[in-house]
Write a protein that binds this DNA or RNA. Structure first.
Length: 469
RNA sequence: GGCUCCUUCGUCUAUCGGUUAGGACGCCUGAUUUUCAAUCAGGAAAGACGGGUUCGACUCCCGUAGGGGCUGCCA
């Protein structure tokens, strides 16, 4: 186990391409990425496609897209496990030669019966072929690893779970090579991790017991075990296993809902990892401080409120033009047509808009007062506000504002407060009417800001129209 | 069934034997006398349960309950 040469840290994310990259996988990838970066190591990607029946190229693409969107790029091109089948078979045969593995001629049906019998006896499955020599048997066979004796203890010193002990009696003679000579997951991971020189395996704790089984294999090969860190799975909001209903959605779905990738990353980081009182940790900072010690042992649940809040935080940091492009995309998706002149206004208003938004679509909604078709549709309430005294205010304001030479925020604020003074009332009496006149009842920022954003001509037109309805 | 992991406010979590159990989201109240939001100021809110160990346990040990995982020629 001792190694006097400092090894370069190499981690990997190894999804099976049987579906989209969902939130749990993304978090696992993130932890591996962060750990590698923290130690100036490498982060690799391996597609575990040894299950031919369930693996699809679409899923591979979805995973790659998801990783790219999140910015979790691997340092080398992905390794496709199925392409390494020959290497896997070679290792299995070495194991047979050394007596650590054997050919098992049990049919699947026979194996099932044996397994049930063993289980009933409180013991793991053992093949009747594990000890004998069956050179003359030419029936189809699988290659199985000969499990350790009953009282042999396998200790995994897990960085998250602590030392975990498994007894030999609980380990079965697991299949390494199928009847068709293709490798199983257990063989493939071990061989690939070794060939890829993986030093740290950070993965879901659904693999915790597998770590013991894999360690037996690794020991049989005389290789060095990687350091393990098994992180708890993410649960749904009801504490049950994560499902689609809970948000086990593809990361692409989060993109469509209007979350920023950096927000997803930052949220995911804190789901199961902590460092004192730190709350929102941007990824660049996480690279400096991420450690295995901060990983929690208990499963966590998704909280969309918190996610939204984190997203709001990153939206405020986001570049206005980038945000504008996203608004454009959402508008297209919702089949809302927005004129270029309005996009210009939206961009100018972005610092104000983004401070009020949680998700990207909020930007679209909250800018409706800019792009809504004019003349405005008035809500009943707004219509009421521009009547009576409101009408007087709007008319008066229209006159004053038309004479303004400088259309800037200070000027507008001053004019508005002068107007209030003239009318001998507070802002509370005039702002609602003006707001209604300018927006028809839509939400909008501060009234002076709204005017500045809309521009002199537009404000004039809207005020004039409001006096006529 | 066997083995194994987990359990602090509603949620994410801090605490690594001695704290008024801290922070964040959400929630409630108030403020900004211009909507909605944002912001600011307050507030309510937690150690699953039962035994030990100890001068002293959220923290260590055992058990119970609840939840997760593995037990495949799936990964």
């Amino acid at each position: 186990m001792s190694n006097n040469k400092p090894q370069q840290v190499i981690t990997r994310f190894a999804p099976s391409p049987t579906g989209d990259l969902h939130i749990g996988g993304a978090r696992t990838a993130l932890f591996n990425y962060l750990f590698a970066k923290r130690h100036n190591g490498k982060f690799l990607l391996r597609i575990e496609d040894t299950d031919k029946a369930r693996s699809t190229p679409q899923a591979v693409a979805a995973i790659l897209d998801g990783m790219a969107w999140l910015g979790l790029e691997a340092d080398e091109p992905p390794i496709y496990q199925a392409q390494r089948a020959n290497r896997h078979a070679e290792v299995a045969h070495e194991l047979i030669a050394s007596g650590k593995a054997f050919k098992c001629y049990l049919t699947p049906e026979q194996a099932t019966i044996q397994r049930e019998k063993a289980m009933a006896a409180g013991h793991a499955f053992r093949s009747p072929y594990r000890d004998g020599d069956h050179q003359n048997n030419f029936s189809p066979f699988v290659v199985r690893l000969r499990a350790p004796d009953d009282d042999v203890a396998i200790i995994i010193d897990d960085k998250v779970q602590g030392p975990v002990r498994t007894m030999g009696k609980d380990l079965d003679d697991m299949v390494l090579l199928r009847t068709d000579d293709s490798p199983t997951y257990m063989l493939a991971v071990v061989v690939d991790d070794y060939d890829m020189k993986i030093t740290h395996v950070i993965r879901g704790d659904d693999h915790l017991t597998n770590a013991a089984r894999q360690s037996v294999l690794i020991d049989a090969l005389g290789w060095q075990r990687p350091i393990y860190a098994h992180i708890p799975l993410i649960h749904g909001s009801d504490g049950k296993k994560l499902s689609k209903r809970h948000g086990a959605l593809a990361v692409g779905e989060y993109e469509k809902m209007g979350y920023l990738p950096e927000a997803m990353l930052s949220y995911l980081l804190r789901l199961g990892w902590a460092k004192g009182d730190l709350d929102i940790v941007p990824i660049a900072e996480a690279i400096e401080i991420f450690d295995l010690e901060g990983l929690g042992k208990s499963p966590s649940r998704l909280d969309f409120d918190k996610l939204a809040q984190v997203n709001a935080f990153f939206m405020q940091l986001a570049d206005d033009k980038r945000l504008l492009e996203m608004v454009r995309k959402w508008a297209e998706r919702s089949q809302i047509e927005i004129a270029d002149t309005d996009f210009t206004k939206i961009l100018a208003a972005m610092p104000i808009l983004k401070a009020r938004a949680k998700l990207i679509p909020d930007l679209l909604e909250q800018s409706e007062f800019i792009w809504a078709k004019t003349p405005m549709q008035f809500t009943p309430k707004a219509r009421e506000l521009v009547g009576g005294f409101g009408k007087e205010v709007v008319t008066h304001a229209a006159t004053i504002l038309k004479e303004l030479s400088n259309w800037d925020i200070e000027m507008l604020r001053l004019s508005l407060s002068n107007l209030a003074t003239e009318k001998n009332v507070g802002m509370g009496k005039i702002a609602p009417a003006l707001r209604a006149a300018l927006t028809g009842g839509l939400v909008a920022p501060d009234i002076a800001q709204t005017m500045e954003i809309l521009g002199k001509n537009e404000v004039s037109a809207r005020l004039d129209y409001a006096t006529k309805i």
